[in-house]
Design a protein around this nucleic acid. Structure first.
Lengths: 145, 145
DNA sequence: TCGTAATTGAGATACAGTCTCAATTATACC
DNA sequence: GGTATAATTGAGACTGTATCTCAATTACGA
């Protein structure tokens, strides 16, 4: 059994919730997809495996996965929410290309530290933060010229 | 006439668009509201002044104001998009309290510079960036205890 | 194995945001 | 000032995403 499956089972058990085949399927799909995904991609993948699985079940399961920190929202782009599985990954920030949609991850330790400093300065207790840079990736810059 | 009105008029003129009373009203409301606002607050304010003004017109005007940099989106919180007027203001980032919704602005020059460095490193041409920190403000931290 | 409360699928519903279209109007040009 | 014309408007229809309802099903503790 995968670590993330154990994690999810524990999370459910603690709350008296059930580990159903549908939830197992969704969990598996989330971690087998490309790291960044949106609901449509997830639904398409799941629909192939079990065409009875309902959209509602996906929408009901995602908040659970968010709540136990197996996944997180990344950027919203063109009205779409994008997710990524983060279990076992370190926090990082994102750059998104406005043309091709490519997502690049980066981590800059100094920025992380400076944010902590800012929070201290304002007596703000940080829970999470998101830094998203929108612009054009190397390839698309060339095309634009 | 206000500076932002001149700005908007020029923007419209350049594109062969019209400066209508409805647009004037929306512009005025945007700058008379608390700096951070959402569509509902804007609609409520406008509805009081002219109850014939349509929601569609607001939705049609906001992209124009965004495009000419008079306003910008800030954070999305609980599915809501929030805007702020930025004309004449310097770029800054946000902290949002998850309990009371209070928005605190901050600017940290070092973070701004580090972001530029990151973009250079990845050959990414930045257009805009958003840094949002979610957590609890000083007051709400006390209440939680 | 059984009882019970959680979960499911399907479709209804809610809601924000967009689109359509006929009527109106701002603006450039005379 | 008058006129032509293309942009704009309001109202309501529509779209698409996400949520809710409810009867039927099912996981899981005892």
């Amino acid at each position: 059994m995968n670590d993330y499956e154990i994690e999810f089972k524990n999370y459910l058990k603690e709350r008296g919730l059930k580990f159903t085949p549908e939830r197992a399927l969704i969990l598996k799909a989330v971690f087998s997809l490309h790291k960044h995904f949106d609901i449509d991609q997830l639904w398409e993948k799941l629909h192939k495996k079990d065409n009875r699985l309902s959209r509602a079940t996906i929408y009901r399961t995602l908040p659970l996965l968010l709540d136990c920190n197996l996944i997180q929202e990344t950027l919203r782009c063109q009205g779409r929410v994008r997710y990524e599985h983060i279990f076992g990954h370190q926090h990082h920030d994102h750059m998104v290309c406005l043309k091709c949609g490519k997502v690049t991850e980066f981590r800059e330790e100094k920025i992380e530290k400076l944010q902590e400093e800012v929070c201290k300065r304002y007596n703000f207790k940080s829970v999470e933060h998101r830094l998203g840079i929108r612009g054009y990736c190397q390839k698309c810059q060339k095309k634009l010229r």
